[in-house]
Every structure is written in C-alpha cells, then in structure tokens.
Design a protein around this nucleic acid. Structure first.
Length: 289
DNA sequence: AGGCAGGTGGCCA
DNA sequence: TGGCCACCTGCC
C-alpha cells in the first residue's frame, strides 16, 4: 500500500458550506466528514481525503491517483465561469442562489455508480442513501485500502441475492438493483454504450431499466455522464419552481420542459443551485419549529 | 411514536 | 392522459 501524500488542487474548491454542499449535497453518496475540517470519500477506485486549510482545500491520496481525484472533482472545469453563463441576469432567484453557493460544482462519477446510487435514492433521504452505499461497499465491494472499499460493480451485484441486497437496507429498491444487475450481465457493453449516446437517446435507454424513471435517468446522466443539460425534477425542485417561479400545480414533466427551456444547456447546474437553496431553507424551517 | 422520504410502475376512469 | 396507490424500512 502506497503512502498518502499531500496534493494541492489546481482549481479553487471553495471551503466551508459550499464544499459541504458539493460533497454531501445529494449528488454523490460516499463523502463523509471525519472531523470538522476533513472529508473522506471514495469514487470509483479513488479513495481520498480532503482537508480544509487556511489557504483553501488540500487533498491526501495514494500516489498515482491524483488524476482520478481531479477527474472526480471536475477540477479541469471553471465552475464560476460556467455559472456565469446561466441566465441569472434576468432571474432574481437564480442570482440569489449563485451568490449563496459560489463555486458549486457537479462532480463526475462513474456511470455505473451513479446508476446504483440513484436507483437506491427513490423516496429516501441522503443519510439513508449513504447508509445503503456504505453497506453495499462494505459487503460486496473491492478493497482499495485497509477499511476502504469501492462500490460493487454491476458484475459484482449480479452475484448478490435480492435478500442480501435487502439486508443492506435497500427495501423495495433491492428488486430493482437485482433485476438491473441481471439485465446488464445479459447485455454486455450496454452500460458503456448508453453512457455515450446523445442525451435524449441515453435517457430513453435508461428508462427501460426497472426502477429508473425520468428523474433518476436525469440524475444518472447529470452526475454520471456530465450531461449538464439534464434537469432532474424531484419534490424539492417541484417545490422550488412552485415557490419561486409561480408554477404551482405543474406536473414534473412540465417542470422539466420549462427548466430546460428557461435555464438552457446548463440547466443541470442551475438545478443543483436551486436544490442547494431549497435544502437550506428546508433545514432552517425544521430547526425553527 | 409514527409519518414520511431526491420515485416508479401498474391499474383504473 | 391523469390521478392514485403499493412498494420497504429506518431516520427525524
């Protein structure tokens, strides 16, 4: 096992609340705080530790996987410049969100891991999804370092019984994961081929998987394939659009259409800002009651 | 203590 | 099409 070595990131990764929202805001499920300034996370075969310092954010990783971490953190993209391309000049609420979470990023995840994570996400809160991911990794994932395991691949999952999946707190999602694993095992290359299809085609393909509807397909494409035009509509976004865009009573599909038109080719990034804002409001309401 | 949760799919008018 | 409900289970 290689030593852990310090690494300073190329791009500015804003510490504090924005970092927390980026790593633990529900776009991926395997980053956890180990203390006030330190985060530990796993993405693919990349295990890393991030530390908030006076100068910004530094990372500790095994030698040789710096590029993997930079890829996961999407460190080659200027996220502030991207956010600046959103229509905040004519959208006061969006402008407020951008100010509240400057430098928010969409992390890159392996396509298959995003699929697993978001199939597990149906009607679950982030803490519970993270528990499922942790159990799946602990029981069925490859060991990357002592005590650190990757998520199981879909090939790994094809060898796991549905009841063993239920034992990882998946509930009715276990049936979906089980069925998807067997379908992917029967159709070699399907996942890889789907990941590189044009957005609409990829989404149409993903929706044919059991337990995958429009929302989860959009999450998989946004977080697992970098399709920033994907605009996942969940209950939070439904609430946000009703509240701030006077779209009360609109159905999810209508909201998705509105979102892609209104926010444009970076709608998925806008979605992450709206989502972050709404979550913060939600927490505040809970705390004050 | 019990309702509810980053949805989906199937069934009924 | 559109609305309604079951599906699992463990946190807040």
């Amino acid at each position: 096992m290689d030593e852990f070595r310090p690494l300073v990131l190329a791009g500015p990764l804003p510490p504090g609340a924005v970092l927390a929202e980026t790593l633990d805001g529900g776009q991926c499920f395997r980053w956890n705080r180990s203390d006030d300034q330190t985060w530990r996370g796993v993405s693919g075969a990349c295990a890393a530790e991030l530390r908030e310092t006076a100068d910004g954010v530094a990372a500790r990783i095994r030698a040789g996987i710096a590029r993997d971490l930079q890829w996961h953190l999407a460190d080659d993209i200027d996220w502030r410049a991207l956010a600046d391309q959103l229509p905040w000049r004519t959208d006061a609420h969006l402008a407020r969100c951008l100010t509240a979470f400057p430098g928010l990023r969409i992390l890159r995840q392996p396509f298959g891991e995003a699929l697993l994570g978001f199939v597990c996400s149906a009607t679950k809160q982030v803490v519970q999804i993270k528990q499922m991911a942790e159990l799946l990794a602990a029981r069925f994932g490859r060991e990357l370092a002592p005590g650190i395991r990757a998520l199981p691949t879909w090939a790994d999952l094809a060898r796991v019984s549905e009841s063993d999946l239920r034992a990882c707190k998946l509930g009715f999602r276990a049936r979906h994961v089980h069925a998807i694993a067997h379908r992917l095992a029967a159709e070699a290359g399907w996942l890889e081929a789907t990941a590189v299809l044009p957005y609409e085609d990829a989404k149409a393909q993903l929706i044919t998987l059991p337990g995958v509807g429009a929302k989860i397909a959009d999450c998989v494409l946004l977080f697992g394939a970098g399709r920033l035009e994907a605009f996942p509509v969940d209950v939070w976004i439904l609430r946000a659009m009703a509240r701030h865009y006077q779209l009360d009573g609109w159905r999810a599909e209508q909201i998705a259409h509105f979102g892609r038109k209104h926010f444009g080719p970076l709608a998925g990034l806008a979605q992450q800002y709206l989502f972050a804002w709404e979550r913060r409001q939600g927490r505040t309401v809970v705390m004050s009651t």
